[in-house]
Design a protein around this nucleic acid. Structure first.
Lengths: 253, 253
DNA sequence: TGGCGACTTTCAGGCTGCTGTCAGGTTTCA
DNA sequence: TGAAACCTGACAGCAGCCTGAAAGTCGCCA
């Protein structure tokens, strides 16, 4: 995997999640390629696909079991999934149905030796975007990957990961260690402000500006109160205080 | 407020363009099927495809020349195009490149006898979404049509499962814990809107847009009422309220 | 054509939980 | 050690939401 730059620009997606906050705005690898998850247990085929796809300047994570693939996908950071149907520890179709049912919309192309028409139809109806039968031509695979992913492009994604905290601004979702957390309007506004520039310190004044219309007179310690409420929900040390300066998302190092 | 007629169902698209007051969410034929443009000069194959696709409750316009197809496409009212590459009066690839250059994004599936890998790659790279080589299975064609069109609509799956709730948009069916649930037209419209992008927050305004003619004045809390009724039928916590923001399918924590 | 039932819309009153404020406590730093 | 900065539990007020009821609308059928 390519090294992760230590500073912005943020517009790429990280997997596995980085320690410090990165803003994820799309499922590209930061250099113009797609970030691809390859789920395949056949070593020879997996190597061929990985080398070809990566050679086309895409970033490929290769996983060989349902189990690891499922946990990787739960973090929704991929632009495309290449899925072998027959895996040693379970069915690819079950995995596909499961991730679709969980609302994960990442495009999926099935790569398989199953060549019955009924298999193809089942695969596509289970939520796959395309279906390629082995043996296939690697050039065609790339063309189909691009065909599928250009449909997926342009969807609004804005995901920020900081430690085990995941903030999806587009979907207005927060989770801590995989657990969804419900926030009120003001709580969300504060968190949203803090996550707008991950890693940066945000002053109380900036948060107040985000919370209230310009010119509003706020005389109390509202920001402190909401930070306190957020900490209670997200975990005490997910928001660091910089005395006299402001707040920052993430644990102090 | 001017209601949309209760039947046929709401999730349709009108072609030619509807009168003011009808919601156009996609290029459906008004009865739940896709509006399909078939561009094919082979009479036997064309008839087979038309009959099969139309038999699957889709509306099919069949054109046999580049010329008529191009003018039909310029009005962009189709949900899907099935394109034969070799036509008597020109190249399907040229037509495809032309409509893409004109910004028409309607999904295109190429149906062709050209089975060289290079042909497939050229077709996909020219803007096609899928590529089926003759002879093909008509069931697979339908599955691919649905896969492509649901992606086009930003609706990655027609079947959504959230917890023990199962919503099949294509079949217009809902079940909770395996038990079928009957919904009225408006109830379905609200649920359909909520399930179009599983996991996303849907504002009251968006739901109202789905229910009522454009420009209608909002005078009451109709959306709240239907959410309340849906909850009574589906289960209290199947729809989460995000105060001041909207609603979302699924339980909130 | 009229009656019927299912569906839709509106309304009002009640309820929930969000919000801003404050006070008293804790932490940090000079 | 004192002052400043920050934290947090509690609470009243209220906006936003929920829901039962009733009136209105529509399609169906005899």
């Amino acid at each position: 995997m390519r090294p992760v730059p230590a500073s912005p620009p943020f517009e790429f997606c990280q997997y596995p999640p980085p320690e410090v906050g990165y803003k994820v705005t799309s499922c590209w690898d930061g250099t113009g390629g797609l970030r691809v998850l390859l789920i395949e247990d056949d070593v020879a085929l997996g190597e061929a696909v990985r080398d070809h796809v990566a050679g086309g300047a895409h970033a490929v994570d290769w996983m060989k079991t349902i189990d690891t693939a499922a946990s990787a996908l739960s973090t929704t950071g991929y632009g495309l999934v290449l899925l072998d149907l027959r895996l040693p520890d379970g069915s690819g179709i079950a995995l596909l149905k499961d991730i679709r049912a969980r609302g994960i919309t990442t495009p999926v192309i099935i790569l398989t030796a199953h060549d019955q028409i009924s298999d193809r139809i089942e695969g596509l109806n289970s939520g796959a975007d395309d279906y390629l039968v082995k043996p296939f031509n690697l050039g065609e695979l790339t063309a189909r990957m691009l065909a599928v992913s250009r449909r997926y492009e342009g969807r609004p994604v804005s995901l920020v990961r900081i430690g085990d905290l995941e903030i999806d601004a587009a979907e207005r979702r927060v989770s801590s260690a995989g657990e969804a957390i419900a926030l009120s309007g003001r709580e969300w506004a504060v968190l949203d402000t803090l996550s707008a520039r991950p890693g940066a310190v945000v002053s109380k004044a900036q948060i107040e500006e985000a919370l209230y219309a310009f010119g509003s007179e706020i005389e109390s310690n509202t920001v402190e109160v909401y930070v306190s409420r957020l900490r209670r929900k997200l975990g005490r040390d997910q928001i660091a205080t910089l005395r006299g300066v402001g707040y920052r998302l993430g644990r102090e190092r």
